[in-house]
Design a protein around this nucleic acid. Structure first.
Lengths: 229, 229
DNA sequence: ACAAAAGTGTTCCTAATACACCCATGA
DNA sequence: TCATGGGTGTATTAGGAACACTTTTGT
């Protein structure tokens, strides 16, 4: 290890890929840049990590400053650091992925003059993106699909109370495949990770029972796969 | 995003946790510091990322400079960045984990005057470690155990040719649990990820057939677990 | 009464587990 | 000939997948 200030050092940014479910589609939160480089292009929210700030705090701060969004489930994703990924100079980006319940938050322009728009995009219809942010989103999506299969992260995308059909639809939307209703319910109930509430959701047809997530059961329900596979 | 050089920026380091198997134990490669802070304490190899250098190249370069070790399987692990983790100032560390076949490499002092010793340590008998490197090693170990279950990384720890008992022992050592020999072999053979060679390993008893890893089969053999679990 | 989503069981099949003996070699 | 690790098959069990009809409500 050399001394701390001997050399020119790379800059460090934190970028955050926020997912939500809106009308049964998986969406990502993007901002449109108002300045060069990549003026008019879309990017994930993010910015530089301050000297006395933890990277995840930087991610959350930038998210709030740029889009007004707070209270998200956050997880570190990957650190992108190849020279040349930012035309302004050497920037290493620590990326995060976040999950939110779209009924609880409303992204909006916060007055940051460098941002023209803040919008949700369907992950299958992404706009032209700046820097390597398309790669970052792809990576986050891959990770989300992966984690959905062996952990309880999916519940972060749902309101506190939800129907089993909501939950099934979430899996089908994100994994992009359909699931048998009976088998799905059998499994979810067998895992014991949800509990019935006393409420039902009324619609124009038969009301559906509302369920809540049970944090404590989830950790044991998603047990490790033994040995291989 | 602010301008690139407006603020004091954190320094960026790359640290690398190198695992190997030696006489049926899982070992980590550590260096003993010769200077304050943490003089005499043990650390994982690593150092600062240069301005025009990809972080993984920095990790590999530092590994070579400090221990002489090259040709490792490398994977990014996690970025540790809380303020205060390095008493000298703000350092964000991108950590990597690496796997090597211990029969191929010999770590040694390379003349770096800041390092007193380079040694392998059993992961269950780690010495007193500097900075937050104990956390980094724990995290790497967790990841290694995890990846072993659903990917073919284990082969990176074995020589090109190995016996099925070697392979089984590797799983048992790392996962710290014993496996039924017949079931293990049945599964490995069913996955088709190894192939017989014509050679046998002679020992003091019945010679064992040597096998080789089949890269191409492995990707399909470790298929994704469906839905949950 | 009908349209629409909610809810519910059984059978089949595949994969995981448990388990014990013979074989080939060197000393 | 014996000590040591190498090598092999079967029966049982558990979990995943396929599959269709009845119920409840609003209009």
């Amino acid at each position: 290890m050399g001394k701390l200030t001997d050399y020119k050092q790379p800059s460090v940014a934190a970028d955050i890929v926020v997912f939500t479910i809106m009308n049964r589609r998986l969406n990502v939160l993007l901002i449109q840049r108002g300045k060069e480089p990549f003026a008019g292009f879309w990017c994930v929210p993010g910015g530089f990590v301050q000297i006395d700030e933890a990277p995840e705090d930087a991610a959350l701060r930038e998210l709030k400053e740029e889009t007004g969004v707070t209270d998200v489930y956050l997880e570190q994703l990957y650190t992108f650091g190849k020279p040349g990924r930012d035309p302004r100079g050497r920037v290493i980006s620590i990326s995060y992925f976040a999950l939110v319940d779209s009924t609880k938050i409303k992204p909006k322009l916060t007055g940051d003059e460098q941002i023209k728009k803040v919008e949700w995009f369907d992950v299958n219809e992404l706009p032209q993106m700046g820097f390597d942010h398309k790669d970052i989103v792809s990576y986050a999506l891959k990770r989300l699909r992966y984690k959905l299969e062996y952990s309880a992260v999916g519940f972060e995308l749902l309101p506190e109370k939800f129907t089993l059909t909501d939950l099934q639809s979430l899996y089908e939307t994100i994994l992009n495949e359909s699931v048998d209703k009976r088998n799905f319910r059998k499994k979810v109930m067998a895992m014991g990770i949800v509990e019935k509430t006393r409420e039902k959701r009324k619609g124009s047809h038969r009301p559906a029972m509302l369920y809540m997530f049970r944090q404590q059961k989830a950790s044991s329900a998603f047990k490790k796969v033994k040995f291989e596979r």
